[in-house]
């Protein structure tokens, strides 16, 4: 993974005019994360160090076979993805999460949404969070139309409500008649747009967005920014994970910087983004 991918300047800040609106009055706390730990259990993963040991010369064939066998049988590796994160979010806040690849951003977001049970610590929340991820494929074999119904029902809408919002969702996503084709035929941008339209149709109390805005074109980005603002105006909270600092700076008032599963910095968007940019530049120079 090259570090040059990390800052994405592709998005022009002009696409997302309007600014984050930091002056907005903040409400009472609606989310409290208390010493959150998430450890993934990976079955059948190679143990660290065995690869090097295998290469050691003079090893007997049998012993090498045994060493390899140990990796294949009963090997469990614990991977700490989030290690002890605590913060509080208030109503009407929009919070960006930045960090390099593999730093635990998406895991943090999912855990905060209550979709991955915490290994240790706890998340307290008022209202129902809704997560919107680019890689959360609903069902690729089914048409977009079917997926809208499934997604809407999964979010807790009734069938009548989904039907009422159907045209709105299709129009917002801008995919037109393609909504009747199976979702596996969609481009990544199309399906990201449809997912965003579905997830934000229910106007959740807490909206969590995982990289979704990076996939849309300029028009779509503008539309989605408007929708995020609507959620915030209805006293909701928005979380946004993105590699695009331009997107984060234009939408978020507050930014959390996560590195190796720990919270490095938590503060106003400009300060954290500046510090993060400095960190990435320093890292790039080193490599």
């Amino acid at each position: 993974m090259t570090e040059t991918d990390e800052i994405d300047f592709e998005i022009d800040p002009e696409d997302l005019e309007g600014g984050p609106g930091t002056e907005r009055e903040l409400g009472e706390p609606c989310l409290l994360v208390d010493d959150l730990h998430i450890t993934y259990r990976v079955l059948g993963a190679k143990r660290i160090g065995t690869a090097a040991a295998d290469d050691a010369k003079g090893r007997r064939f049998l012993r090498r076979l045994l060493a390899q066998g140990r990796d294949q049988v009963g090997s469990v590796r614990e991977i700490p993805a989030v290690r002890g994160v605590s913060f509080t979010a208030r109503r009407g806040e929009s919070i960006g999460i930045v960090g390099i690849n593999g730093s635990g951003k998406s895991t943090l977001l999912r855990a905060v949404a209550g979709l991955i049970p915490p290994t240790k610590g706890a998340v307290y929340v008022a209202g129902e969070p809704s997560l919107l991820g680019v890689n959360a494929v609903l069902m690729g074999k089914l048409s977009g139309e079917r997926n809208i119904m499934i997604g809407g029902l999964a979010l807790g809408l009734t069938q009548a409500e989904v039907r009422a919002k159907f045209d709105d969702i299709v129009e917002f996503s801008g995919i037109g008649d393609a909504v009747y084709l199976p979702m596996r035929t969609y481009s990544s941008g199309m399906s990201a747009r449809l997912r965003f339209a579905i997830s934000s149709a229910a106007t959740p109390d807490i909206l969590m967005i995982d990289e979704a805005l990076a996939t849309g074109d300029a028009t779509f980005r503008q539309k989605s920014k408007a929708r995020i603002d609507t959620v915030r105006e209805q006293a909701g909270t928005v979380f946004l994970v993105s590699h695009s600092l331009a997107t984060i700076e234009s939408i978020c008032s507050r930014v959390l910087w996560v590195h190796e599963g720990r919270l490095v910095m938590d503060g106003p968007a400009e300060d954290v983004c500046a510090a993060y940019k400095g960190f990435v530049r320093a890292k790039r120079r080193k490599s």
Binding site: L115, P129, S130, L131, N135, L138, G151, A154, L155
Partner: peptide, 9 residues
């Protein structure tokens, strides 16, 4: 799993 990790139900 993708459904489980995206929505609450």
């Amino acid at each position: 799993l993708s459904l489980v990790r995206s929505v609450h139900f």
